[in-house]
């Protein structure tokens, strides 16, 4: 098959979502409203914990940091998944996939949507965290960048797997868009160390790149150095999950072409 990657086609799909968010106040507000609400709840809880006991020093920075990094993962996943669901809701998927766009071009565009959502909402959260709690997340220095990159890539991988399931099962699987991240949250040791989890869950937790990021975040905030092991493990796991997600999507898409289910997407 002769095909070539075109950034222009990716940009076309990305631009479609820029148009959508530019004119939709509810969609734009959604980028800020829930993340800031999360931040307020966890921030106040952390302040209360710090006042109650000295057993959890730096609780504010740790919990607020965890909320912000979790939001990055969640927004990356949602950006990708909601972009796909928007095509179903608007019953325009066939217009898109009957155009010359290729799967890599489409995935690149939706990953870019996820990246933008993660950056915009997280930047707002960092600002609010500093204004409300004087939480200076930038004190972790360059570690902030690789941690962001790792949760972003894992969010993309989870997003690609989620849209694969929606492609396979249609509207019935839409709830996974919101459900999958919350299935992963307790296993990722976002707000507590892995040691707080039962032993039989440890292998599952350590199989997720997000767990290594959140463990490293706590370690770094507690004054630890560069967590090379966590960096490398999360990176290797992310590569594996991303490859798995892309393979699953390609396989599911081909299956949809054979079953003839693509033209029915959004019409069930």
């Amino acid at each position: 098959m002769t095909s070539s990657f075109s950034w222009r086609r990716s940009y076309a799909v990305f631009g479609r979502f820029y148009f959508l968010y530019r004119r939709s106040i509810p969609r734009t507000m959604e980028l800020f409203f829930w993340p800031v609400m999360d931040l307020l709840v966890w921030g106040f809880l952390a302040i209360w914990l710090e006042r109650q006991t000295e057993q959890v020093p730096g609780a504010v920075l740790m919990l607020v940091g965890a909320v912000i990094y979790w939001n990055m993962l969640y927004r990356a996943q949602m950006g990708l998944t909601i972009s796909f669901i928007e095509e179903l809701w608007s019953r325009s998927a066939i217009n898109l996939f009957a155009s010359p766009i290729s799967l890599p071009e489409y995935l690149t565009a939706t990953c870019a949507v996820g990246l933008c959502k993660a950056v915009i909402s997280s930047a707002a959260m960092v600002l609010v965290a500093w204004l409300m709690y004087r939480a200076e997340l930038w004190t972790i220095g360059p570690n902030a960048v690789w941690m962001f990159f790792h949760v972003l890539v894992f969010g993309w991988a989870i997003g690609i797997m989620t849209i694969s399931m929606i492609l396979r099962w249609g509207h019935a699987a839409e709830a996974l868009t919101w459900g999958v991240p919350f299935l992963l949250q307790p296993l990722s040791a976002v707000f507590y160390p892995v040691s707080a989890m039962p032993g039989w869950l440890h292998p599952i937790a350590y199989a997720l790149p997000s767990t290594h990021v959140f463990e490293a975040l706590r370690g770094t905030l507690a004054g630890g150095g560069f967590p090379l092991r966590a960096f490398l493990t999360a990176g290797a796991l992310n590569i594996a999950y991303l490859l798995l997600g892309v393979a699953l999507f390609v396989r599911t898409f081909r299956h949809a072409l054979r079953r003839g289910s693509l033209p029915r997407l959004g019409h069930e």
Binding site: R16, L20, R23, E86, S90, R91, S92, N95, H267
Partner: peptide, 10 residues
């Protein structure tokens, strides 16, 4: 007639 364009865009 049964395939739309995104209705929320101009």
């Amino acid at each position: 007639a049964s395939v739309s364009l995104p209705q929320n865009l101009t």
